[in-house]
Each structure stands twice: as structure tokens, then as C-alpha cells.
Amino acid sequence: MIRTALLVAGKDLRIELRSRVLLWQVVPFGVMALLLCGLALGPAHAGNSPAGPGLFYLVTLLVTLLMINRSQAVERTSGTRSSVATLGLDPAGVFLGKALALAVELWVTGLVLLAGAVLVLHTALHGALVALPSIAVTLGALAAAGTLYGALTAGGDGSATLLPVLALPAFAPLLIAGERSFSAALHGGALWEWWVIAAVALVAYLAVGILLYGVLEES
């Protein structure tokens, strides 16, 4: 299972490196969304706003949706599904691999957006660094959940519009946990309690994905 996971994650990351969709489309979209958040708050309130952590996670969620669609689109190119079926890859390994690749992409994008939040929204650098472990876990949970929801909606009519409808309610607890732990890192408070909630969600989504991904890919 781990071998398959590393194989699939490597394949997805190599495709991403060659296509540069993340670099030229997803990251610029995230930066633009962050700037729009600053504009929506207004110049007087954008700097050092208490809404900073929430806006960071909101933009991350939007970026995540784009990346899930991208991750599933890679699987839908002609020949990929039949190749996976012919190779007899363990579905749990495929799920873990896709989740790992998505997590790596989210971590990279998260770092860029965090730098953007420090720069544009004047989020305290020290607080942002303290929040890094909780951000990493929350983004990992988003990747695991996103891979599962991506497989649920892939290929159907209007899958791009269906994905947010299904995934955003499931992402809401992660948004809350991430925002709270980030706010706690900036202003003090129960950082670890929310961090643990995100970690539990990560483990739960990984477990559900390992158990059920095969059912979704069943032909």
C-alpha cells in the first residue's frame, strides 16, 4: 500500500511539475483572492485585522477546490483509469498517494499564501511561524477529505460545481479548527486543542478513504 502510495504521489507531482498549473494558475489565483479579501475589508481595516487567519483559510479552501478538480482531471485523461485497473494497484494506496500529492501541493501553496498574509494583511510573522504545524495538519486533513470528495464527484454532470456543494460543508469544521489555532498562535489561547481536532479529522478522513476509496473506483 505504501509503495503504491509513493508511486501515485510521485506520478501526480511529476505531472504537476511538468504542467506548471499550480505555479501559473492556482497560486496566482490564491494571491489575487487574498488581495480581494484585503480590498473587501477596506484599507483602514485590512492591516493587522483579527479576520486575517479566517481569510487565510477561506482563500486556502478556494484554492483547495481548484486543486482537487485538477487532481481528479489528471486521473480522467484517456488511458489512465484502464492503466490503473490493469496494473491492479491497491485502491487504498492510490487514495493515500493522491492525498499525499495534494497535501504537498497544498503545503507549498499554503506557504505562499501565508507569506502573502504576512505581507498584505500584516499578520504577525512570529505568530504565523508558531501556527505552521497546525496549518500543516489542517491542510493535510483538507487534502485527505478533498481526495475523497473529488473521487465522489469525478466524471458526473457538472462535477466542478458539485464539488463545492459537497465538500465545503465537510471542510467547515477544518476551517474552524484551523482558524482558531491560527488565531490562538497570534493572540494566545487554546492552540493545541484545535490542533488536535484537525489531527483527529486527518486520521478519520485517511481511515475512511482507505476503507471506501476502492468502492468509489469499482467498475
Binding site: 465522489l152 464527484t153 458526473g156 454532470d157 457538472g158 462535477s159 458539485l162 456543494v165 459537497l166 465545503l168 460543508p169 465537510a170 467547515a172
Partner: peptide, 18 residues
């Protein structure tokens, strides 16, 4: 309210696959 949206999502998901 989130559960309500999830239930609507379930119905939308059913309509998306023939």
C-alpha cells in the same frame, strides 16, 4: 444548517450520475 446542505448535496450527487 450544514447537515441540511449536506442532504441537499446528496440529492445533487444523485442527479449528477446516470
Amino acid at each position: 444548517a450544514i447537515l441540511g446542505v449536506l442532504a441537499l448535496g446528496y440529492l445533487a450527487l444523485r442527479r449528477a450520475n446516470d
